[in-house]
Amino acid sequence: MASKIEVKNLLNAGVHFGHLTRKWNPNMAPYIYMERNGIHVINLYKTVAKLEEANEALKKIAGSGRKILFVATKKQAKDIVAEKVANVNMPFITERWPGGMLTNFVTIRKAVKKMASIDRMKKDGTFKTLSKKERLQVDRLRAKLEKNLGSISEMTRLPGAIFIVDTMREHIAVKEAQKLNIPIFAMVDTNSDPRPIDYVIPSNDDAGKSIEAILTSVTEAVAEGLAERKADKEAPKEKAAAPTAPKAEKTEKVAKEKTEQVVEKKTEAKPKKTATKKAKADDLTKVEGIGPKAAEALVAAGVATFVDLAKAEADNIKTILTEASPRLAHLEPASWPKQAQMAADGKWDELKEWQDNTKGGIEDSEE
């Protein structure tokens, strides 16, 4: 289990230091505790509350099998993010944010495949047939692709969420995630606008210690979600491998028969009551396009399982989302019943293949 977040630890890491008062964003006022020596001080109690909320959501997304993309291109955050995120096997961008990384994901995937094709050339000997100049050009291209896209080579579809350090610097990433309705988690300093962010973590996004403190907590939550997912997968296998119970002895059979006779008599005298169990809610975030907030809105409206979602009409789903929150009104649920039907039928491989070939509503035209 992830360690408890302590205000004292955040204080020691300098998470409470904001920017100069003249550089502040008024929308950050609810998260500011006071002003001292011309610098705003962040309310760490609110930071702890928001961090716990974000960790719970990230844990759920990681547990559903979706990827979480971490973005931090500023110098003091690069190495920290690369180290922490690599430990939980999640994709990250620490160099330059490639324009269209999310909105033009199909093209980005082609660049990643180009990198894989160069590796195949080197293995099958095709690379050696090229001239010295061509080999040099190919090596340079491979190095450039590795530097910019190497960390996302295993991200075959759009991420389930995006975590950003410094939203002002990564404003393009914020806009792309907003356009595709990808949940945004971010460290937001006093000079940034928290309104576009779904899960705001008010904190100092400039100091290395502060970034490390927040990233440590976040990656622990992600690791916990991945561990739970692994345990859930192994549970059915262990159950199937469990030895069958030995046959009952003859005396036990006789006792069982007598018990059944008594039960039958009682059943005849008193009609059996039928108990109705409430269906357990499914993890609707496994459907492409449904984030944690949209899933909560659907469950609250009675669409709690994949079967319910498969039977629902897109227009009715749209109405539920719009009434739940204006921020969910732009979602396009046209494909949700189709995906939910595949999930309800247990066709997970077919669902994954469909999701891999569909990026933000655009069919993948790759080979």
Score class of each variant (00 low, 15 high):
56 E>P: 01
149 L>D: 00
107 T>K: 12
33 Y>N: 14
149 L>F: 02
163 F>T: 02
140 R>Y: 03
164 I>W: 00
95 E>V: 05
121 M>V: 02
74 K>N: 03
85 V>F: 06
106 V>Y: 02
169 R>C: 07
58 L>R: 08
63 G>C: 06
56 E>M: 06
57 A>F: 05
98 P>H: 04
57 A>I: 12
130 L>P: 10
31 Y>T: 09
159 P>F: 12
75 K>H: 08
162 I>V: 14
116 A>S: 14
81 V>H: 11
136 L>W: 15
127 F>C: 01
32 I>F: 12
88 V>P: 04
109 R>K: 15
168 M>G: 12
54 A>Q: 00
35 E>L: 10
87 N>A: 13
33 Y>A: 15
57 A>L: 09
100 G>E: 02
123 K>G: 01
90 M>C: 11
46 K>A: 01
161 A>V: 08
80 I>C: 09
152 I>H: 00
162 I>Y: 07
148 N>V: 07
89 N>W: 09
113 K>A: 15
151 S>H: 09
77 A>W: 08
63 G>P: 11
28 M>N: 12
166 D>M: 05
153 S>I: 09
78 K>P: 03
160 G>C: 05
55 N>S: 11
109 R>M: 10
30 P>Q: 03
145 L>E: 02
136 L>H: 14
107 T>H: 13
74 K>Y: 00
56 E>A: 14
99 G>A: 14
144 K>L: 05
92 F>R: 05
82 A>L: 13
141 L>Q: 06
63 G>W: 06
62 A>G: 10
165 V>A: 06
130 L>M: 15
28 M>Y: 12
162 I>R: 04
104 N>Q: 05
48 V>A: 04
87 N>K: 12
143 A>D: 14
105 F>M: 02
162 I>E: 02
137 Q>V: 08
129 T>V: 08
53 E>T: 11
129 T>W: 04
123 K>W: 02
100 G>T: 01
67 K>N: 13
110 K>Q: 13
70 F>M: 01
136 L>P: 04
135 R>G: 14
86 A>Q: 10
130 L>A: 09
74 K>H: 01
104 N>H: 07
37 N>P: 09
117 S>H: 09
98 P>Y: 02
103 T>Y: 04
120 R>Y: 03
89 N>D: 11
42 I>L: 15
44 L>I: 05
130 L>T: 07
43 N>Q: 09
38 G>Y: 02
126 T>P: 03
52 E>T: 04
40 H>A: 13
142 R>A: 13
68 I>G: 07
36 R>A: 15
98 P>A: 06
62 A>E: 10
97 W>N: 01
93 I>E: 00
31 Y>R: 13
127 F>N: 04
39 I>Y: 15
172 I>P: 00
91 P>I: 07
33 Y>K: 15
161 A>E: 10
118 I>S: 00
77 A>L: 14
50 K>F: 02
132 K>Y: 12
150 G>D: 00
109 R>S: 10
131 S>Y: 05
72 A>N: 09
46 K>P: 00
49 A>G: 04
69 L>G: 09
